[in-house]
Amino acid sequence: MAVYPVARTEEIPEGTFKIVQIEGRSIGVYNVKGEYYAINNYCPHQGAELCKGPVCGTTLESQVYEFIYGRDREILRCPWHGWEFDIKTGKSLFSDKVRARSYPVIEEDGQIGIVIGQPKQREGTEGC
């Protein structure tokens, strides 16, 4: 396990993100409502650069013919096929088994660090 310093907090204001390179991996560091999250810049479906996709909200679980918009700015949508991922966990919104890799983030003294190599990380599943 190692913590990689990647940015100062002021470099990634709320609602923005930064792409960083760590040991050959491209990782997007997102500031969602004041909290930082790190997600692999690689879609588990066909390998698009996930972080080129829009950050958005989505429709929440609802009754038939009811549309409830929510989770605004918490969802990352793949730029190719529109798959939705929860920025906080990397999980896709359609299956627990499909996820983009996410990394723990540590914020200390205005410094953002990404933790690589924790055993609890899970790989993204193969799309096709």
Partner: peptide, 12 residues
């Protein structure tokens, strides 16, 4: 288009 198939990724 949005449902683009990458030639290096499909039918592998």
């Amino acid at each position: 288009h949005w449902d683009f198939d990458d030639p290096t990724q499909i039918l592998r």
